[in-house]
Design a protein around this nucleic acid. Structure first.
Lengths: 148, 148
DNA sequence: TTGTTTTAGTTGCATAAACAACTTTTAATC
DNA sequence: GATTAAAAGTTGTTTATGCAACTAAAACAA
């Protein structure tokens, strides 16, 4: 295939990027419309902590696919907003354990429901079996790209 | 479905985000490894201009799915790197027409080949018909999200 | 023709990402 | 036990995003 045949709008790269972008915008808007002052990236961190509270930053970086500096700053902002706290690990003084505040725990139900609603908006009129196959392909791509 | 059943790693939102992220990282790395000092976002603008040179900024914003301020700054940086120039429109003094420099035109073949190679890395061992269906779903999602 | 509205683009501010360089603490090695 | 290597976090710099507010020019209307 020649470079002259390259059609950006037909590439999976472009399409996943667009879906990701529009989904994030829609989710941010839905959070805001419901009165929640939480960014999409902050939400991704919260999801991991709702699932398993008290992780260290390294584990959070791994779970969210971000690097350590990104997590440092996300946690800075979440801590500023009183959604979590850093607790120094008693056994290893290099480590911070990150714990949700009550305020953050109370957000779980509503924010997840907004996320689910947002996904439904995106998947409207699309057959579940098609979605399943799509997710399958996306997972394979992630595996291809993650390795080394 | 209860909020307690929400599994982030199984949601299309998460999966498209991860694919988009890993693809961008891989593409950036491949550009850099080949000695090209072009960011992924700058590349997206270049693709649109290779296809149709001399667009105004508004059209570029639309074609790339970004807002006007994002385009202003991307073009600032591309202009700094001598990849394009702003030319005031003779008929409408509000408008800038954006033209590729020769330097940018010469990059087209190589950068697109790198992008195609990167996509191949991502799609390794995945059946073309599965990819086609996946793209179909992604397009439907984009349409669902873009409207309104 | 003046006054108003729309359009194109820019600037300011907050959040976030990628990469490199750095500090501190722990683990490993000799 | 002193030295070196590795791990956990932080900081700095550049690039990019989203939103709101802004300027300047053009289009529209009274």
């Amino acid at each position: 295939m020649s470079y002259k045949d390259f059609k950006l709008d037909d590439s999976v790269g472009y399409l996943t990027g667009q879906v990701s972008m529009w989904l994030s915008r829609r989710l941010a808007r839905n959070f805001k419309a419901a009165g929640y002052d939480v960014t999409v990236e902050q939400w991704r961190v919260l999801v991991r902590l709702w699932d398993s509270d008290g992780q260290n930053q390294q584990a959070l970086a791994c779970a969210t696919g971000k690097d350590k500096p990104s997590i440092t700053r996300l946690i800075d902002n979440l801590e500023k907003n009183n959604l979590l706290v850093r607790v120094p690990d008693a056994n290893d003084r290099r480590v911070n354990l990150v714990y949700l505040t009550n305020k953050a725990k109370e957000l779980q139900k509503e924010l997840i429901e907004i996320a689910e609603k947002t996904l439904q908006e995106a998947l409207d009129q699309i057959q579940p079996d098609e979605v399943a196959l799509c997710k399958d392909v996306l997972n394979k791509m992630i595996n291809n790209l993650k390795v080394e």
